[in-house]
């Protein structure tokens, strides 16, 4: 667990910087904004204690909020996603359960498993985030469209990021 520490600190800083300086400035077709930073929550170890998971999610969301003038929105959505994570992991566990010394990444559990895992959590995060942002259900369809298109782009970015980390972990 301790040996992961520097790697996760690096991940945290790197993802926040990429999110704030690059992705927040990219808008496909006007309003689609990918949120790559939640990859940090996705890749945390299986056996992370619940309080630490929620705490990290809150700190991460708050950091993003600080830079985008949206106090509470990203932190609420990220904590919600982190809350769902243990239940989802239990629901989609492989037949022989998770192996020790593995992480919930594409490299260790395959493309399809990771797609299922990432899709549900990203969709949960984006739905929560966009509905808090609008704060009512009267624009339901336009908001849903934003959620779906943003989810798609976030997933694309997450998979690209996972491919880049592929070479690094091959020796494992």
């Amino acid at each position: 667990m301790i040996s992961y520490l520097p790697r996760y600190i690096f991940n945290f800083i790197f993802l926040v910087l990429v999110q704030v300086f690059v992705l927040n400035n990219i808008q496909f077709s006007g309003f689609v904004n990918p949120y790559l930073y939640i990859l940090f929550i996705l890749t945390l170890p299986f056996d992370i204690p619940g309080w630490l998971l929620l705490g990290l999610a809150f700190v991460l969301g708050m950091t993003i909020d600080l830079f985008s003038n949206t106090p509470g929105m990203h932190s609420a959505a990220t904590v919600f996603m982190a809350f769902l994570r243990p239940y989802l992991l239990r629901a989609i566990a492989p037949r022989d359960d998770y192996q020790p010394a593995t992480l919930p990444i594409m490299n260790h559990y395959g493309f399809l498993w990771f797609l299922k895992y990432a899709f549900v959590l990203v969709l949960a995060h984006h739905s929560f985030l966009f509905f808090i942002e609008v704060f009512d259900f009267s624009h339901f369809w336009s908001t849903s469209w934003r959620i779906l298109s943003s989810t798609f782009f976030t997933l694309v970015f997450i998979f690209v990021a996972q491919l880049f980390s592929l070479g690094k972990n091959k020796q494992r």
Binding site: G50, W51, L54, F58, G61, P71, G72, M73, S75, A76, V79, F80, F83, P86, I132, F135
Partner: peptide, 21 residues
């Protein structure tokens, strides 16, 4: 139930931030 309770607590706090923006 610390996991669920902590979750609710943080969400309440976040929502308070959003609402009292």
């Amino acid at each position: 139930h610390h996991f669920v309770l902590l979750f609710l607590l943080i969400e309440l706090f976040s929502f308070a931030l959003v609402v009292n923006y």
